[in-house]
Design a protein around this nucleic acid. Structure first.
Lengths: 208, 208
DNA sequence: GTCTATATGGCGATAGAC
DNA sequence: GTCTATCGCCATATAGAC
């Protein structure tokens, strides 16, 4: 295993980065291995050598980001879950901020567009893979929201958390009307997004 | 022009229906004209004869549904816009219910998945086409929301309407955690969805 | 208006040299 | 671990018969 270097990425990492970008822009079927390996500056045969197939490359693109996202969300939630003074806003921040921080990395926002595509895809293998990698942390959040919203039925909590997820994905993927203004830095835009999402979602979750 | 008949659809209509379904399930690049014409029961060459190209077929799939959606939304909004007794919930209903009614048609929910894909697509021609067909009605809604939320800046209104749009698209495309239960009819599910969306979104829009 | 046949080119995957 | 060359297949689009 070569030591990580700031100057040079491994072939695997270059492929993963290019795959994330091209899958976001053109879809899983729309982005070809030829475009992808050309963008990454590696040989066409490298994808099959390092990942086995295009489908397994798709899964690796998800695994890398979802592991990171799930880890940060779990850590953030653990700091507030079960405490008597915890607010809805605290739990929402644990849900939303790690997702927004994912876009610190250059590929983060692109990854959100990949995720949007994956949800729309009619591919049971991919859906099962995502569910297996996503369900556990989502369940921890819905439990905590349910604790803080005792006047709601479980079903109402599911509905509202799902609507928050929709708003979050939409905002993060940058596909809506709201685009970062040129006089706002990326960092400021992320903070603005978090503020709007949290106040909007908190009010929506707490609706009578 | 042949008279419309309940028993037989025209070749054009059969192609549009099959295209909507296959574009939803497999994406624009993932669905081939061979799959599509085979599913529609028409000859491979029929797409190019009736639509000119695959790209123009994609646009026709959007035009058909967006014309309908924009029409119903405009009509519903005109009934409440500018009236002193109009509530946020009234305007939200004009925004949300026509979108949900679109899924009366068999292809409606599938079309929402097509729309999700289109937003993620990196295709300026398609984005411009959608913007041209969508912007006008969206502007009428944001104006009316702004009138009813005078304590918010214009920018805050844009943000919140965008978040409502994200929640709506997510709920309508059926890609989230919330799926229709087998003991609930489609009609009941649609009414439930509208209720949850409206109460959640109204609270979110009105957040202090 | 619908068909068959085909032109032209890109696709994922792999074999085998280095 | 990276390369070239290639296999076998499918894509969109069109020409021309009926």
């Amino acid at each position: 295993m070569p030591a990580p270097s700031a100057a040079a990425q491994s072939t695997k990492e270059r492929i993963l980065g290019a795959a994330e970008e091209l899958f976001a822009r053109h879809g899983f079927e729309g982005a070809s291995l030829r475009q992808l390996t050309s963008a990454a500056g590696v040989n066409l045969a490298a994808v099959n050598y390092h990942f086995g197939s295009k489908d397994r490359l798709v899964e690796e693109v998800f695994r890398r980001r979802l592991d990171q996202l799930n880890g940060h969300r779990s850590t953030a939630l653990a700091k507030v879950a079960g405490l008597p003074e915890t607010t809805i806003e605290d739990v929402l921040a644990a849900f939303i901020v790690p997702a927004l921080e994912l876009s610190h990395d250059a590929g983060g926002q692109l990854f959100m567009r990949v995720l949007v595509r994956a949800f729309a895809e009619d591919d049971d293998t991919l859906r099962k893979f995502l569910s297996d990698n996503y369900r556990h942390v989502m369940r921890m959040f819905t439990s905590e929201f349910a604790r803080l919203l005792p006047h709601l039925t479980k079903e109402e909590v599911y509905w509202r958390v799902d609507l928050v997820t929709g708003a979050l994905i939409h905002a993060m993927s940058g596909i809506g009307m709201i685009q970062r203004r040129s006089d706002v830095t990326e960092h400021e835009h992320r903070e603005l997004t978090a503020e709007h999402l949290i106040s909007f979602s908190a009010a929506g979750l707490m609706a009578r």
